[in-house]
């Protein structure tokens, strides 16, 4: 199975390539585009990125495993992230996590993450990357059951 960027993304890549002094710098943007396109970053996508950025496959793989937001496995469920860092913990993130695990783990993958930079809106979650701040169990039920 091979991977190729779709037309829209290929165009974006062409445009991006002009904005960096070296092809290597395209690495993170390319990984993002691949993840957007397929929902995760497959080995085939990394092979293609290795060709475009002119870096060895292992470099791509090594970089992809450094950053927590790159997913190298296909997801079966949609993801709800719960921030667990201090301001959120002080504001009740543990109870939020418990609530999510007890009520929504069948439909959603519940993942704990470190500080998302939303301490003013603690406790906070994300649904498929979108921030939900000052969450309460009732509010999460509404949002998650509606989606």
């Amino acid at each position: 199975m091979s991977f190729s960027f779709n037309d829209e993304n290929s165009l974006k890549i062409e445009h991006l390539a002009k904005r960096y002094p070296h092809k290597k710098a395209l690495l993170l943007p390319l990984l993002w585009l691949a993840q957007k396109q397929e929902g995760f970053i497959s080995d085939e996508a990394m092979t293609r990125i290795s060709e475009i950025s002119q870096m060895p496959f292992m470099h791509i793989y090594s970089v992809a495993t450094f950053y927590t937001m790159f997913k190298l496995q296909k997801k079966s469920k949609r993801v709800v992230e719960v921030c667990r860092t201090l301001s959120c913990e002080l504001s009740g993130s543990e109870a939020i996590k418990k609530h999510l695990l007890e009520n929504h783990s069948d439909t959603y993958e519940i993942v704990e993450v470190e500080c998302m930079g939303a301490c003013g809106g603690a406790p906070m979650c994300t649904l498929e990357g979108k921030y939900i701040e000052n969450v309460t169990p009732q509010m999460l039920d509404e949002v998650l059951n509606a989606n």
Partner: peptide, 8 residues
């Protein structure tokens, strides 16, 4: 470039 560090 066969070897690399993975994870962090």
């Amino acid at each position: 470039g066969e070897l690399g560090i993975i994870g962090r």
